[in-house]
Amino acid sequence: MIFTQALLAKCFSLDGFSRFVATILVAPKKLCFGAQVHLKKVFALISKRSGKPKHRQQLKRKILMNIYDAAKILGIFGEITPEKTKTAYRAACKKYHPDINKAGEEMMKIINQAYDALKDYQGEIKEQQTDYSDLLNDALNAILNISDLVIEICGAWVWVTGDTRKHKDVLKEANFRWASKKKAWYFRPEDFKSRSKGNKTLSEIRETYGSYAPKRFIPMIQGGA
Score class of each variant (00 low, 15 high):
Lys215Arg: 06
Ala225Asn: 12
Asp99Lys: 12
Trp159Cys: 03
Lys52Cys: 04
Leu39Ala: 09
Asp69Leu: 03
Phe217Glu: 07
Ser133Lys: 04
Gly104Tyr: 00
Lys200Val: 01
Lys94Gln: 13
His167Lys: 04
Lys29Arg: 14
Val150Pro: 02
Gly16Arg: 04
Asp116Ser: 12
Thr81Leu: 06
Ala35Asp: 15
Met108Tyr: 06
Leu171Thr: 02
Ala114Asp: 06
Arg49Gln: 14
Ile153Arg: 00
Ile143Pro: 01
Pro219Gly: 09
Val21Asn: 05
Lys10Thr: 13
Gly16His: 06
Lys54Phe: 09
Ala71Val: 01
Glu105Asp: 10
Leu59Gly: 01
Asn199Leu: 12
Ile151Tyr: 02
Arg216Gly: 04
Asp163Leu: 11
Ile146Leu: 02
Ile205Thr: 01
Thr164Gly: 01
Thr164Leu: 00
Gln122Pro: 03
Thr161Arg: 08
Gln222Gly: 11
Val26Cys: 10
Leu25Ile: 08
Tyr212Gln: 04
Leu25Gln: 14
Ile111Gln: 06
Gly104Cys: 01
Gly78Lys: 05
Phe33Lys: 14
Glu190Arg: 14
Tyr132Ser: 01
Cys32Lys: 14
Val170Ala: 00
Val160Ala: 02
Leu171Tyr: 00
Val158Arg: 08
Arg61Asp: 10
Gly123Thr: 01
Pro28Tyr: 11
Phe17Tyr: 10
Gln128Cys: 09
Ala184Gln: 02
Thr201Arg: 03
Glu83Arg: 12
Thr164Val: 07
Lys119His: 13
Val42Met: 14
Lys52Arg: 12
Lys172Ile: 07
Lys60Asn: 07
Lys95Val: 00
Gln36Phe: 13
Lys102Glu: 15
Thr81Met: 05
Lys182Ala: 14
Glu127Asn: 12
Phe43Gly: 05
Arg216Thr: 10
Ser18Pro: 00
Lys72Leu: 04
Ile46Pro: 05
Asp134Phe: 02
Ile63Ala: 11
Ala174Trp: 02
Pro219Tyr: 08
Glu105His: 11
Gln57Asn: 15
Leu140Thr: 03
Gly224Ser: 06
Ala103Arg: 03
Ala6Ile: 11
Arg90Asp: 14
Ala22Asp: 15
Met1Gln: 14
Tyr209Asp: 04
Ala88Asn: 04
Cys93Arg: 06
Ala92Asp: 00
Lys72Gly: 02
Tyr68Met: 01
Tyr96Thr: 01
Lys48Phe: 11
Leu74Arg: 00
Ile24Trp: 10
Arg165Pro: 02
Ile63Leu: 13
Gln128Asn: 08
Pro189Trp: 02
Gln57Leu: 15
Ile46Glu: 12
Ala114Trp: 04
Leu45Asp: 15
Ile125Glu: 05
Pro214Tyr: 03
Val160Gln: 02
Ala92Tyr: 00
Ala71Met: 04
Lys54Pro: 03
Asp191His: 09
Leu25His: 12
Lys48Ala: 11
Ala103Asp: 03
Thr87Ala: 15
Ile46His: 12
Lys86Ile: 08
Leu8Gly: 11
Cys93Lys: 12
Ala27Leu: 08
Ile218Met: 07
Val42Lys: 07
Leu8Lys: 10
Gly224His: 10
Thr161Asp: 06
Ala179Tyr: 03
Ile100Glu: 07
Lys193Ile: 13
Arg165Cys: 00
Asp148Thr: 03
Glu83Met: 07
Lys200Ser: 10
Leu144Gly: 02
Ala91Gln: 11
Phe187Gly: 05
Ser133Glu: 07
Asn141Met: 07
Gln222Met: 13
Val26Pro: 01
Glu106Gly: 03
Ile146Phe: 00
Gln129Asp: 11
Ile125Leu: 08
Val26Asn: 14
